[in-house]
Design a binder for these strands. Sequence first.
DNA 1: AGTTAAACTATACATCCGTATAGTCTAAAA
DNA 2: TTTTAGACTATACGGATGTATAGTTTAACT
Lengths: 201, 201
Amino acid sequence: MPDLLTGRQKQVLDFIRQHIEKEGLPPTVREIAMHFGFASPLSAQLHINALSKKGFITKTPLKTRSIKVVGLRTTEGRSIPVLGTIRAGKPIIALEEIESHITIDKTIFKNKDAFALRVKGDSMIESGIFEGDLVIVKPEKEPLNGSITVVLIDNETTIKKFYREKEKVRLVPANKALKPTLLNLQDVQIIGKVIGVIRKL
Amino acid sequence: MPDLLTGRQKQVLDFIRQHIEKEGLPPTVREIAMHFGFASPLSAQLHINALSKKGFITKTPLKTRSIKVVGLRTTEGRSIPVLGTIRAGKPIIALEEIESHITIDKTIFKNKDAFALRVKGDSMIESGIFEGDLVIVKPEKEPLNGSITVVLIDNETTIKKFYREKEKVRLVPANKALKPTLLNLQDVQIIGKVIGVIRKL
DNA sequence: AGTTAAACTATACATCCGTATAGTCTAAAA
DNA sequence: TTTTAGACTATACGGATGTATAGTTTAACT
């Protein structure tokens, strides 16, 4: 059970977080006090001590602006590449194919080697994956049956539900208008498993 | 043509950059001096002034640790709050209701006041919004007809397609199993428009 | 009623920090 | 040869900063 914050402590923590966001630097003790209208810097200091004791922030004694919000800034976002296309062959993430980079939340998408891929087609609409969405892909060679995977067939990427059947692979779309396909294992290159979806409306 | 740096200035700039990377904070004047073995803090200060004049760094006068390296990735991610519940009344983002914070890509979700909300229920499955998804909400009081909005009815949040009809509001789910509802304008509190969806699989 | 804890005021201290003044040394440019 | 500029030393000032001591107020719990 995590230590709970009092209302005021939550406010202070949020101000610190906001200050780092906006100014790019954590506030000083007095800047916190000033923001809340405290007459004494100790008022802010006590909240800092409490937040530190409860593990929400860390700080280096005697060092100015040394407050760090746990889980922020260092552990915050991760930059992953957005791939335009994926070509057959060895290096999955070919530098030439990197369209851009996006920042995703480390705590939500933990995989370090993940990358993003823009969805083409509507093979997965019943699983809530639409054309234009970004899927977060975790490279994986042997996905579990039923998981949504990215596979490469004849230099084209498709997203389907994956079922291994002996030396064959069944690829099932989540779209009643489309039919499952059964392919030989050596004819498909398994890229990875879809671990997330990001859609901009 | 950019101003060129002297050897020493480049060393100082490198140290500043490295310090930000490693410690998460820019160094103080004296920390720079100490690293290079300077006996006087002015030695470091002069380099800082030169780097600032040449446009490689910026700083706020009289403010401790305020050096910023120009062009260094500050954060392409933005931290937004994830709300547990939304209560009727004035402040949409009640501090007490912040469950956690997530980092989203600034370039994708540009709105500064956005927040995230975890989806409960299956009223929007046909629009690819499932239970457990995080929706990114941009606060807005008068959404366009047809846009996916978050509204508050009797202290409960729901996500529906929004249609304004005179003094009434039609809320249309994207789920054939559910029926549209027609409500008086004063009985609903419009929270905002859904601008994005994040799903973890 | 007594105790505890959170929240805050008032004041103070030693150190840290950005900045300033004055001057030294060295090497390249005029 | 004189000048100029980069790099640095020695010392110091005023304000900012983290921290400390002592005490007040308010609400919650025993």
